[in-house]
């Protein structure tokens, strides 16, 4: 009984952590290039919707997932293009993308299906293990790519500053744009996986996961391993709050719904604690 519970908690942790990790590694690419990826949340949302729409239309889960990643990439192209090409403030461009995402999804949904509510896509629904395996391998590949490839190395140099990059003959702007695209595609795929998990798109289904992924980038010390670990921790939080909710979820006023707030509050606390420790370490050393 207890063992069963633990296993299901473990699986549920992995299922929550995997999309976070992929999106966070995308965010890491942007951070490593010296930019900020506020738009992870937006990319996840358009990824989820596009995956459901394409999955519904084609009847293919694979096509849905690919389309989700592509949609995330398109959104991040707006942000990266504005920031790198037009020298716009990356923060404002990212916010605009986050405002754009739910709007454009709703408009598209209204135009195509006459509803702005839930969009069922049974064809997209995939097994839990399939999704975890897909996301985990994508995360691993991305982590490896960032830390070991020639591209990843140059990306990190771009993140050290334009002058240093220029001295090494590296065009930092191009790498920064590429990093935004990677972030968009990764979080688009992560969003698609959310939709695949339940076989439907539900408005607001990302509910701040893109932001938690962004926090994981900072908490993980900007290293792939650390970022993945932070995501596992947040995944555990989500799993725990779901589990406890399952125990007491009979009455509407039982407070089970309140538990959904815990991951966000704890994430904020973790960030504060980590930053505090970092500051103390610096002051001491």
């Amino acid at each position: 009984m207890i063992l069963e519970r633990l296993t299901s908690l473990g699986i549920s942790t992995l299922a929550s952590a995997a999309p976070l990790a992929l999106a966070a590694l995308g965010g890491l690419a942007a951070a490593a290039s010296g930019s900020l990826s506020i738009a992870l949340e937006g990319s996840m949302l358009v990824g989820a919707f596009t995956a459901a729409a394409v999955g519904h239309a084609t009847g293919s889960a694979a096509a849905g997932m690919a389309a989700g990643a592509f949609a995330g990439l398109l959104l991040s192209l707006l942000v990266g293009g504005a920031a790198v090409g037009l020298k716009a403030d990356v923060f404002v461009a990212g916010l605009a993308a986050n405002i754009l995402a739910p709007g454009i999804v709703s408009v598209a949904s209204q135009a195509a299906y006459g509803t702005k509510g839930v969009l069922a896509a049974e064809a997209l629904r995939s097994g839990q293990w399939e999704i975890i395996a897909l996301l985990a391998s994508a995360s691993l590949a991305l982590a490896l790519f960032l830390s070991r490839s020639v591209f990843g190395l140059r990306l990190r140099v771009a993140g050290e500053g334009d002058e240093i990059a220029a001295a090494a003959g590296i065009r930092s702007g191009a790498y920064r744009l590429a990093a935004h695209l990677i972030a968009g595609a990764a979080s688009g795929l992560a969003g698609a996986a959310l939709a695949a998990g339940i076989g439907a798109y539900v408005p607001g289904m990302t509910s701040g996961r893109g932001w938690i992924a962004l926090v994981a980038v900072f908490l993980g010390g900007r290293r792939p391993g650390g970022v993945a670990l932070a995501c596992l921790l947040f995944g555990l939080l989500f799993a725990l709050s779901n589990l406890v909710q399952g125990f007491g979820g009979q009455g509407a006023s039982s407070g089970a719904e309140l538990l959904q707030a815990v991951p966000y509050a704890v994430t904020a606390l973790a960030l504060v604690a980590w930053k505090g420790a970092e500051r103390r370490r610096k002051a001491g050393g």
């Binding site: 701040g208 932001w211 509050a265 904020a268 960030l271 505090g276």
Partner: peptide
């Protein structure tokens, strides 16, 4: 006190 970015904590606390 700690340098934890307002940008992140304000969003997370608001969400909670």
């Amino acid at each position: 006190r700690t340098g934890a970015q307002v940008m992140l904590t304000s969003f997370l606390l608001a969400q909670a």
